[in-house]
Design a protein around this nucleic acid. Structure first.
Lengths: 194, 194, 194, 194
DNA sequence: ACCTTCGGGACGCCCCGTTTCT
DNA sequence: AGAAACGGGGCGTCCCGAAGGT
């Protein structure tokens, strides 16, 4: 049996994932029909279902890819930085996030499995905040859990807005506001009146 | 002209809308198949499509109902108050909000039509903030537009979280944080250290 | 029990039949949905089905109305005359004829019931031809049954054409040709070279 | 590129078309539901709609197939010959013809597209008649256009009759009559009294 | 009695994700 | 890896009977 190189296989998977991301982002999960996936990936059903068992797995692969990527960035640069980069992000990314939210809502089994990813990111964020508190840059009059919750809320709100295509010229200022909330009072004042 | 009472007609519409809300919230737009709608409303296809031309219109009616209701509350009590009431809100309400976001993303025509509702709420929120600024309770070092954007972001983030069923014991504290952002500095301090 | 006058009842039936004729002619049997019938008659479902048990009976009533009318005309003026008048005929009439043909094809039970009408007209036509033969104006080298068949064929062809909206400037000449076939040879020649 | 043989593809298309012809002929256009088409072709919905975009296209393909076939026969053997063969014709053929007539009536767009086929046949018939006129076998005291119209009328009448299942033992004689109309006078007499 | 609106549920078409065959 | 085939199910329409009003 002639066998393609692993590199080729990986490339094909990438090609499919990239196309699928565009498709899911543009049309939503059920709007991304197999026909659309074919068009967007440039491959036939046969090829797609050769590499992924079914449509659902394809979506899951995409979602988990993003989830682990975000966890890394949060740990390194913090949630606020993730948000700042959000507008430059590939639109496909946002669409997938939104679809994940929908699935979380309607599919209990999915929520159970996804909890793991949520915990990872939450942990990473808390860790970074505690570090900041040690360094004296993060306020200490509020539990870090609350600060994480707060930032996470703003983050998701931003995802929702951007994904929905709502343009907003205030974004930079808004993120400054969000950041000021977690900073120590002294720092906060300085930044607001430079 | 022989005609069933208006009350009866209104009641039927309500029955359908209520059932549909549950259906859309629980299963998402495409998950709410007509069969599900039948089960949830307790009526047959015939009845449903007698009162609404198609599934889409049914969803729209629901969404617009909520949009105008929220606009009223925002004007009267402010966005933060809306958020505080959110957790007690009927779960169906949240599901519809989320579906609206999805539609905004995938359906350009829908976005165009929905813009009107967004503007209404934004206007209401700005108006209230300006009033607060006049009374000296709202900070004046940041444009109100930015404050509205900020609150709106938090609101949508909260909707996303609650809709996704993510329980969070920090919500009350988080909302205090959000509120502190829009308050004048002096006020802010007092509240945080009572 | 208050009862509308018989005249009123007859008028309503007429109103319904006339509208239904237009509907069936314009859209075909299945194209003439109850909604279309409502629009075309200006009455509601209730009214229509109050006077006729169901859609099928309505169509039947129409078809039989036409069938008996044609039988009368054939006996009095002959098949060729019927054909000559065809182009001026209400378009609805033709549509119904065509629908009858379709029903004859697909519905065995209907064919059985309709046979009666066919026989009536055939008899009438034969009777008239035999009279003509006695008077020496109709050829006698061919059985009258064949002549009737021939004329009937031309008639139905004409119905098909006109119903299909196929305009044809030759119609008058063509009917002359058809008529010449049944006339005695001597007569035939004279007419063709006047 | 792996691919099923063209022969296979053509065979499948044929299988579908043949089944569809039976279905349309037996039940009429709207009577030929997709379920009926499945039964008659022995294939599933999926297969059928894989080869034809929709039911309408399937019908169109059938109708055009017949239209071009008839055009060839007319040019070679003349309209009368076509009529003579009509009773032996596959019953499905007649049904489709009749449905075409119905569609011509109710669907303006269809009529426009079909006109092309009508013109083709008419041209073919005229051409053949002019040839006959040159050879002295076709009468010249009447425009060929009128003769074509006449024959076409008889043809359609015959289609209508046969399609409606009206048996008629006179058919052969009737067609002789029709043919005599287009023949030169001298010829006419000979044939009628052999 | 006459007419309207409401409601039911069977079914029509076709699309969809998936499996099977080359 | 592509083309073909499958059959479940989606939405909306259709005809009609029931319920209600004048």
């Amino acid at each position: 049996v002639p066998k393609r190189s692993d590199a080729h296989l990986a490339a094909r998977r990438r090609q499919i994932l990239d196309g699928a991301r565009r498709a899911f982002a543009r049309h939503g999960y059920e709007g991304a029909t197999v026909k659309v996936l074919e068009a967007e990936t440039g491959l036939s059903r046969g090829a797609i279902f050769h590499h992924f068992p079914d449509k659902d797995s394809l979506f899951l692969a995409l979602a988990e890819q993003d989830a682990s990527e975000i966890a890394v960035t949060v740990e390194r640069d913090g949630l606020v930085q993730v948000m700042r980069e959000l507008p430059q992000r590939d639109a496909g990314w946002l669409g997938v996030q939104l679809e994940v939210a929908r699935r979380l809502r309607t599919d209990a089994e999915f929520r159970r499995r996804w909890q793991r990813h949520l915990d990872t990111v939450t942990k990473a964020a808390e860790k970074r905040l505690r570090r900041g508190r040690g360094a004296g840059t993060v306020r200490d009059d509020v539990p870090t859990a609350a600060l994480v919750s707060f930032l996470w809320l703003v983050h998701d709100g931003l995802v929702l807005h951007l994904a929905a295509g709502l343009t907003d010229r205030q974004t930079a200022t808004v993120l400054d506001l969000a950041e000021s909330v977690v900073r120590k009072d002294s720092e906060r004042t300085t930044r607001e009146q430079p």
